[in-house]
Every structure is written in C-alpha cells, then in structure tokens.
C-alpha cells in the first residue's frame, strides 16, 4: 500500500496520476469500493479524509474498516489531506475528526511500503 498525503489543493491526485498509466488505475473519490469481484486495476482512494469524516458522523468505525481494507487490497494507493495543522477547533466533532484522521494516517503510514508528502505538486518521499 502506498500513502500520499499533503495539504489541500497541493496537486496530490495529479502527482499520483503522473506516476501511473491511467488505464491501469481506478479512482474512488471519498469512498471505499465494495464487493469488487475481480480486481484488475490499482485502487486509488482519493479524498480519503472525506470518507473518514462521513464514517465518524455515522458513528461507524473507520479505523476497523480501513485497516481491513488495506489487508485485503495491499496494492492500493490512499490519498489524504493532512488536516491537523491548525488551531484546535471549538466544535467537538471537528476536533474528533482531526484527531482520528491523524491517528488513522499514522497507522496507515506504519503499514505503508511508501509514504509521500506532496507540496506544490512535488512529492517528497518520507518513507
């Protein structure tokens, strides 16, 4: 699994697209694919943080789901915004979203074979 992180509007998806043949990948925006019968393409999860946010709002457990998902699809690419670099929000939900998204990304980074951080469209390999 590969993890690509960075701030909002840093060109993360474009960066990933530049590294793959577009024919060989399938992009999912803010969702995890369900019931894939035969996986031919590399799964790219874009806007991963939006999926986490939705799961928290529904009182689901995004931690369990995503860790199972990456076990099942070890070749996937996960693209996520970094969301923790700001003033701690006043709203409890926003605080929880930032904290849990951060923790999930720390765990995914441990599991990932490669972690890249994208700034101004340029990828820095940090693992």
């Amino acid at each position: 699994m590969k993890l690509v992180i960075g701030g909002y509007a840093q060109g993360k998806l474009n960066y990933v697209l530049g590294k793959y043949d577009v024919e060989t990948i399938k992009i999912y925006n803010g969702e995890l694919p369900e019931n894939i019968e035969e996986q031919r393409e590399t799964i790219v999860i874009n806007h991963f943080q939006n999926w986490v946010k939705r799961k928290i709002a529904c009182d689901d457990c995004p931690e369990k789901e995503i860790f199972e998902f990456v076990e099942k699809y070890p070749d996937c690419v996960i693209i996520s915004d970094e969301v923790g670099n700001g003033i701690v929000p006043i709203e409890a939900f926003e605080r929880e979203y930032r904290e849990r998204t951060g923790r999930i990304l720390v765990e995914l980074a441990k599991k990932a074979e490669e972690v890249e951080r994208v700034i101004c469209g340029i990828g820095q390999k940090i693992k």
Binding site: E82, V83, G84, G86, V88, G102
Partner: peptide, 8 residues
C-alpha cells in the same frame, strides 16, 4: 513540531 494527531 507537528499537527494534531501527527504522532509527535
């Protein structure tokens, strides 16, 4: 340094 939930 690091953000919230960065593991710092």
């Amino acid at each position: 340094i690091g953000g919230s939930g960065s593991g710092k």
